[in-house]
Design a protein around this nucleic acid. Structure first.
Lengths: 219, 219
DNA sequence: ACCTGAACACCGTTCAAGT
DNA sequence: ACCTGAACACCGTTCAAGT
């Protein structure tokens, strides 16, 4: 009996793209971005690394699918009865929470933007603003700011997770960078070392929402 | 005469971190992110790959220094007499222009955020708002949104440049992704395929500036 | 058709040996 | 002190050989 047959007999899960992607998510979540290799995938699946290429195109294909799965599961939870501002806050914070739970998603979103899940987010944001009577041009501008904003936060979060996995303390590194600068005055950036990322994201979204309201003509 | 001696005699440029970083920027600009290897660097510098480690810690060190050099050169051009809104627009668009000229900078900023140049940008934005009488909390929120926003744009831009270098047409890929979705209505995202990135960034910055003005209590 | 696993063409980094 | 370049420990991907 070959290993592949053993696996199929034991768990009734023949090798497939879904199984490969699910296993990739397991590895990424438990051991981090650096641990995802085709050799590690093949070992966990009790197969040869070459076998994977019968079901996925390449490593990017696996990462894209894994990211899509995580993001899609958050966007779908969008509530349709909430006020537009609340709905948008929930959408953006939902992306943050997904990245908080799976930091590698942040790195992948920054590496390959405009994947389908992000387009869905873009449209979901625009749709809420449309329902609120916001001009189409402002819908587009706002969606662009919010999606790129959370993309930037995602990238930063993933970098911090990588530093943490590498044994470094990201907040100590940030503190060191803040102090290293020749900057004499205006130490606003120093506050970066003491804020809560999720609360900061919410405050940023509120600032954008204030801008939308202002352009709508009501304070 | 060793190759190193020949190089030194010919151009009076002994191996140094500055020379290594300058050569790395040459490679990144002319051949893209994928072409920067220690072997390629060593070849251009007529030395052995091991010699580089006498002057730089590792590849990240080279990329960090190269990115810092590009970003620092744009932030320094900040005008001190312009209106706060104009100054902020100039700062953010300056980052965009740097990334437009050197797409690999976008990838590196997304990979290792909170490098010193970004902290400088953060402070520069906050300082302009401070001079304009904006509350400190709003200064911080606005700087956070604007810096992360341009970071997200940077990541997307770098990904598009990578796709282009790989022989693909990024805008065609985006169009395909837009059409691939099951999305029935609200095709706002479809407009992504026809906008100008720089103009869109400017519009997004204006939206944030409108939010700042609204929170300041004037329309 | 699918799997196997050695082989290929790369990486970043190290290190004994030179000067 | 600095340089050299082979060697090490990895990658993603391919492919002849099997079932």
């Amino acid at each position: 009996m070959t290993p592949a047959k053993q696996r199929a007999a034991r768990r009734s899960d023949a090798l497939s793209k879904d199984l490969i992607v699910a296993t990739a998510i397991e590895i990424l979540d438990s051991e981090g971005e650096g641990a995802l290799t085709f050799r590690a995938l093949a070992r966990r699946l009790s197969t040869g690394s070459g076998a994977l290429y019968h079901h996925v195109a390449n490593k990017d294909d696996v990462l894209r699918a894994a990211t899509g799965q995580v993001i899609a599961s958050t966007t779908h939870k969008s509530e349709h009865d909430a006020a537009p501002a609340d709905a948008i806050r929930a959408l953006i914070l939902g992306i943050f929470d997904a990245i908080d739970a799976h930091p590698w998603v942040g790195a992948q979103l920054a590496r390959e933007p405009w994947q389908v899940p992000l387009l869905d987010l873009f449209d979901a944001v625009a749709e809420r603003l449309d329902a609120d009577g916001v001009a189409e041009r402002t819908q587009f501008d706002a969606a662009s700011v919010l999606v790129h904003y959370v993309l930037g936060v995602a990238a930063q979060y993933a970098a911090a997770a990588r530093a943490l996995a590498g044994g470094a303390d990201p907040s100590a590194l940030l503190r060191a960078a803040v102090e290293q600068r020749a900057g004499e005055r205006s130490p606003v950036a120093a506050r970066l070392t003491e804020h809560d990322d999720r609360e900061q994201l919410r405050a940023g979204v509120d600032l954008v929402l204030a801008g939308i309201a202002a352009l709508k003509g009501r304070p």
